[in-house]
Design a binder for these strands. Structure first.
Lengths: 354, 354
DNA sequence: CTGAAAGCGCTAACAT
DNA sequence: ATGTTAGCGCTTTCAG
């Protein structure tokens, strides 16, 4: 592979000139520039990005750490980051954490070794302290789908409470009074917040959600089936079922159908996430749309902006083209603002009025 | 961030010694080694991978170019590559091609700039000539899901004909005689091969598939719905429906159900891929399992092995742990062998006997 | 076994 | 406007 010296030699100029032509910043004579560009094309020269990164101590690479790419949700997350990366001519470096705290840290460190300064992290199990420390060390670190007050301006997250409340309210409006909930065994964060949204909305309508109408299981299709089986086994009566996510909702639909119940005639089911499975099941699932892809794109933009600020360049985060974006009331310092997205109700065929 | 000089200074040794300790290749005195390692730990030193890559002209990075990460199939593909990358301590550099030939090439070139020598490419639209040329230039390039005879040993692909034949035969064994097929509008490669598998299996049973029982559409849920609607509209009679993939099959199920047909009682439906949607729909879909993740892992192993061979190191591709792996009859030269995987039938609830 | 020194390919002062 | 030159952080001869 030709290098900068070859180009310089063939074009009869110095390597500095070639460098200038490549980077376009400085002024180069027209004739000279044309000649260099011609040679670059002829030789098929492409700058060595390792050398560039080494000397300029900055690299247009964005890193993404995610639990498990094979899951639709995370694949979509990755797609969002990739979109921004492509638009801003960044490279995307990926690492799966496989849901393990240690490999999550390993992944982050390996990204840092490659001095990638913008990092989008979906962390589920690392504790806040670790993440805060990390955020201090890495100016371009942004968390998706998690909120940590101390680093609020580095968090791009979803209002799970509002989302769950929205779904619940819709069901109330449809005259449902008997609710059941199937939720994930990880009662921290998301599941907890969604449950809270449900509870407070019901409470406002003077309905208490009995403990026995809540069943925990794994957050997948099988979990949904098991949870509903358990609910049915102990004779819980409900006309409305709120599932932690679409996967569980789909499992629930299978289990309800197996038990001879009709959906939505006998029981209405609502999911969360709006994955493709929501459109695959029958009846198609009414669910809360989780704008993962938009959030991920935004998170990537934020990470890039922060990382270049951190490198004391004055790049400012351009306004996101995304309409779902909610800003805090404090618009002053970037430090005082977090990045909260809202989910929206997608009505399909799994909900009926009582 | 501490660099190698800092470590050398603090440990009271030369940078060469630190380098030796890091790489472990050369001999270093025990006392000396221990001291250096202690300092490395204290300073939290991590070698700059750009500098390493620059000087050693080799980088443990594997690149993946894929059309669209947000699609389950490609997310799973990426997960497979990532698995190998993690196991072999490689970094994963990703780029979406967005189904465009030019961005596919751009993506590959950008990977090469980062001198990543192992590349896994899922190419749908580039022509064979381009790919062959690319393969000549990049020793570590491997194609997934595509077969090009001239570079057979660099292709990791699926026997689509056999897969479709298997599904068809199963239907024949269940006494079905009236077939319909919904296929993708891209009649090249995969759809063509699957159609061929169907046709030849039916032919062997003395059944001809009438042209009007074949409907083309887009390879997604909507496409499946449209295709079935078209079939029904022109009164095609069939008891067995073969869909190009799971997405189309799911759409078909929706459309059939909407038309008052029962599945599998009135019509049996078979998909292809075994994505999660196959388990989400009702009835759960009988389909051909496409071992994407295993294939992708394998492709990544192959790419790494080839790239280091290309760098004239004598790393040999270890036998794949994967049972689906089929080798050519020529086990001699690696050049004489391709990497063909087989799909397997997953029986669920969308098929009944006549 | 360890150190000195020469680059890897490039950018960015500093000269001219 | 263009050339000269000093590194970026590391690996790898080559000496000792």
């Amino acid at each position: 592979m030709a290098n900068i010296k070859d180009v310089a030699r063939v074009a009869g100029v110095s390597i500095a000139t070639v460098s200038r032509v490549i980077n376009g910043n400085h002024k180069v004579g027209d004739a000279c520039r044309a000649r260099v560009q011609k040679v670059i094309k002829e030789l098929g020269y492409r700058p060595n990005s390792n050398a560039q990164a080494l000397v300029s101590k900055t690299k247009s690479t964005i890193g993404l750490v995610t639990p498990k790419l094979a899951m639709t949700f995370f694949g979509t997350l990755a797609a969002g980051v990739e979109k921004t990366a492509r638009e801003q001519h960044y490279k995307l470096l990926m690492a799966n954490s496989m849901y393990e705290t240690q490999s999550e840290l390993d992944a982050i460190n390996s990204l840092r070794d490659h001095n990638c300064q913008a990092i989008v992290l979906h962390s589920e199990y690392s504790d806040e302290k670790t993440l805060i420390k990390l955020a201090e060390e890495i100016p371009g670190l942004v968390l998706v789908n998690r909120y940590i007050p101390a680093i609020a301006h580095r968090c791009v997250w979803l209002d799970n409470i509002a989302g769950a409340a929205c779904a619940t309210q819709m069901l109330l409006d449809r005259q449902h009074r008997d609710f059941a909930v199937i939720t994930s065994i990880y009662q921290n964060r998301d599941p907890g917040a969604r449950l809270q949204g449900i509870r407070q909305t019901l409470a406002a309508a003077n309905i208490t959600l009995p403990e026995h109408a809540i069943e925990e299981s794994t957050a997948n299709i099988e979990g949904g089936m098991q949870a509903v089986a358990a609910l049915l086994a102990r004779n819980v009566r409900f006309t409305a079922l709120l599932a932690y996510n679409d996967l569980m909702a789909v499992g629930a639909i299978h289990a309800l159908f197996a038990a001879g119940l009709r959906i939505p005639e006998d029981v209405s089911v609502v999911g969360f996430d709006d994955l493709i499975v929501a459109r695959a099941c029958r009846p198609q699932l009414t669910t809360m749309h989780y704008p993962v892809e938009a959030m991920a794109s935004y998170a990537a933009e934020l990470a890039i902006a922060l990382s270049s600020q951190g490198a004391s360049q004055k790049t400012s985060l351009k306004d996101s083209p995304n309409d779902n974006l909610q800003l805090n009331q404090h618009r002053s310092g970037a430090e005082l603002r977090t990045h909260l997205f809202l989910s929206t109700l997608i009505e399909r065929d799994s909900v009926a009025s009582r």
